[in-house]
Simulated scan of single mutants.
Amino acid sequence: MLRSIMFGLGFCCVLLVSRGLAAETESPDAAPETLMCEPGKLLLSDTFAAGPAKAWRAAKGKWVAVDGATQGTELQEDMHGAVVRTNVPARNMVIAYSFKLDGAKATTLSVNDAKGHNSRVIINANGFSVRKDDHDHAGPDKAELLQAVKTKIAPGVWHTLTVEINGPEFLARLDGKQIGYGSHAAIDVDKTNLGLTVTGESVAFKNFRVWDATPKSDWSSTKAKVIGAAGK
């Protein structure tokens, strides 16, 4: 009897450990909870544990591996914020990653198309904003703020940003709570690449993932609630 109990306990422990290891292995690519888009095919996954993978190209700044994450820092001699980019062709997408402010003035997620900058999320210690971009000042279009969200973003603490893009609609959610939302016809184009930027001191990044996306079947019925939660 005792031997059976010990075997049972041992089996349970092995099972729990196995499940824990499986969850740990699967979690980096697990799709986040979303509001507007249904995540589909995983297009990109980078833990950033050893610095940016080969798929990324560092245009400016210093990008190094620190404590299992990638740290980006602006270099004064560049006279430009630190920038790292990767090609991800898609029209509609879900993007999720974690970041930690380590003294930086600001960091952005830049979504780009064939003409240049398309849209972005701008993050600093006082909150975040979503905007339609102006294609590198190359044309008559101008950057347009879609929504600014005021909320304290603690430094030295990991936060998660989830971005959903569906046609002209752009939704960003911080830590599964605060929502920034907007819509602009210029966003509804094929995207070519994504970028992360750092202005000032460092920002750490980890678990950067991108999925192809389709609109959720219930989006039309829940849109009003989402927009209401975004304060619009």
Score class of each variant (00 low, 15 high):
M1S: 12
L2H: 14
R3N: 13
F7M: 13
L9K: 08
C12K: 11
V14E: 10
V17Q: 08
G20Q: 13
A22P: 08
A23R: 14
E26Q: 15
E26H: 12
T34R: 02
T34E: 02
L35Y: 11
M36E: 11
L43A: 04
L43W: 01
L43Q: 00
L43K: 00
S45N: 04
S45G: 08
T47E: 06
A49H: 01
K60C: 11
G61C: 01
W63V: 03
G68A: 07
G68L: 02
Q71C: 13
E77N: 09
M79G: 12
V84Q: 07
V84E: 05
T86Q: 04
V88S: 02
M93H: 12
S98F: 02
F99K: 01
K100Y: 07
L101Q: 01
A104V: 07
D113K: 05
A114D: 11
N118H: 08
I122N: 15
I123R: 02
A125R: 12
F128M: 03
R131E: 15
K132H: 13
D134T: 09
D134A: 13
D134F: 10
H137K: 09
K142F: 07
Q147D: 08
V149N: 05
K150H: 11
A154G: 08
V157N: 04
W158Q: 00
H159A: 00
H159I: 00
T160A: 05
I165L: 14
I165D: 06
N166Y: 12
G167M: 03
P168C: 05
L171T: 05
R173K: 09
L174M: 11
L174V: 02
K177F: 04
S183K: 11
S183Y: 05
S183D: 09
I187L: 07
D188W: 08
D190L: 13
K191Q: 11
T192I: 06
N193L: 12
L194R: 00
V198R: 05
T199E: 15
T199A: 12
G200M: 04
G200Q: 02
G200V: 03
F205Y: 09
N207M: 07
F208E: 07
V210R: 01
D212A: 14
S217W: 07
A224C: 10
A230F: 00
G231L: 06
